[in-house]
């Protein structure tokens, strides 16, 4: 049997790698990739805790499905914004996108 802490540790590590990717990437699509990693880490947490605390009630899995829905919507809208930015600015380098910066 796998201890619950292993899942939680894996999820924490994945979340922090996602944070690192979000903070260090210059390409906007790379940032979206980091966000997906973080959402996956949250899902692992939900499913593992649901499995170990209430194995017969699947609330955690249902919640994970809703997170996947939101992640899909977020990816679609985020990539549409990236493409729109690319069309206007000819690049997606977030260092140089300063139009809304005061």
């Amino acid at each position: 049997m796998i201890p619950l802490e292993w899942y939680l540790g894996l999820s924490a590590a994945l979340f922090c790698i996602g944070i690192f990717a979000v903070l260090s990437r210059r390409n906007a699509i790379g940032i979206l990739m980091g966000i997906e990693l973080m959402l996956n880490a949250a899902n692992i947490n939900l499913v593992a805790l649901a499995r170990y605390m209430h194995p017969h009630i699947l609330t955690g899995q249902v919640f994970a499905i809703f997170i996947m829905t939101v992640a899909a919507a977020e990816a679609a809208v985020g990539l549409a914004i990236v493409i729109s930015v690319y069309r206007n600015a000819e690049h997606i380098n977030i260092d140089k996108i300063t139009t809304m910066k005061w």
Binding site: S24, R25, R26, N27, I29, G30, L32, M33, E36, N40, M68, A71, A72, A75, A76, L79, V82, I83, Y86, E90, H91, I92, N93, D95
Partner: peptide
Amino acid sequence: VYIGAITVLMMFALMMTHRVMTTDISQSLT
């Protein structure tokens, strides 16, 4: 959802924007 939809979606977005963000430029903050 993730491999079939989101990864493919990102692949499309990358192909539409790859002209200026290819391998010769560093992808991370300078």
